[in-house]
């Protein structure tokens, strides 16, 4: 009798723990293929980027690790033998201007749709968002004409002009949702204190909305980095290309692939974008589906 009474309090946690361990093992086993599938290509690209050329083309040894010392040569090649430096500068400049245009248009629009109780606001908001769904593949040919009319062909400015067609609809929608969460009272208080409607927006609403604004900037950047078609269709001059296009087109000469540099150039920009996007992924998902959960 006594032994049982003593044993129970000890045994109970142990079985709990065994259960929890078993559950964890099962979950990890289930996740393993997914993790491998998701991560292996990145790992492989990284290893390739750091391998010496002869090390890439050996099928007799396990290819997953280095058989010659790792090297920075592929990165060196990018910066000294290609226009990679230009591509990075172009990408940054495009990101800057697209973010600026997006903020200047989507912030007021999102605010107006969310807060000013305009007639047809809801329909207008949905209308703007729907243009996000008109894909580039339908627009790129007429836009090619627009771009050449504006004399922007073969210049990264053409991408500054067209990327807001992706980012404005998305960010207006996102910011509309965001502004709906800012309490009306702070605006009313500002107006009681003598601010006009515009003053209330600029001095009170915007300063408390910076998380929304940062999110909009991040999406202006990451969504324009996902594009390949517009860059491919509008820019064919080497020093005007953004990174994804430059890497994909200039590091393949005829049948010769500079695999090491290709992977190096792709990762150098891809990884930071992926990290930033990762941090804001939930906002993206709730941006496009959010209301459905409500």
């Amino acid at each position: 009798m006594a032994t049982v009474a003593v044993a129970t309090p000890y045994r109970a946690p142990r079985t709990e723990r065994a259960k929890s361990i078993r559950r964890h093992v099962l979950i990890y086993l289930g996740l393993l293929p997914f993790l491998g599938l998701a991560v292996f290509p990145i790992f492989w690209m990284l290893v390739t980027a750091l391998k010496q050329e002869p090390d890439l083309y050996r099928m007799d040894v396990v290819p997953f690790w280095f058989h010659l010392p790792p090297t920075w040569k592929n990165f060196d090649f990018l910066f000294h033998r290609t226009s990679y430096g230009d591509w990075i500068v172009n990408t940054m400049a495009i990101a800057f201007w697209v973010s600026a245009i997006t903020l200047l248009t989507a912030v007021p629009a999102g605010y107006a749709l969310a807060r000013l109780r305009l007639p047809f606001a809801e329909n207008l908001g949905i209308g703007i968002f729907m243009t996000y769904l008109v894909p580039g593949i339908i627009l790129f040919l007429p836009l090619a004409r627009v771009v050449s009319t504006l004399e922007l062909q073969d210049s990264w400015w053409s991408l500054v002009a067209v990327y807001p067609t992706i980012t404005i609809p998305f960010c207006t929608w996102l910011l509309m949702g965001f502004f709906k969460t800012v309490p009306f009272e702070i605006e009313e208080a500002a107006m009681v204190d003598g601010c006009g409607q515009l003053g209330a927006l600029l001095r009170v609403v915007l300063p408390v909305s910076w998380p929304g604004l940062i999110t909009a900037v991040i999406f202006s950047f990451t969504l324009s980095m996902q594009d390949f078609l517009y860059a491919l269709a509008f820019v064919s001059v080497s020093d005007q290309k953004p990174v994804p296009l430059g890497v994909a087109t200039e590091l393949i000469r005829g049948d010769v692939y500079f695999w090491g540099s290709l992977m190096a150039g792709a990762l150098l920009v891809g990884v930071p974008v992926a990290i930033v996007y990762n941090l804001f992924l939930d906002k993206f998902i709730s941006g496009i589906t959010g209301a459905a959960i409500k």
Partner: peptide, 24 residues
Amino acid sequence: VVRALVVIPFTLPIAVSVLGWKWM
């Protein structure tokens, strides 16, 4: 951590990851 790793394919710029697959 697992979630952050598993979503990598979606967050990488598409042209970048396609180049990796081309090599694979």
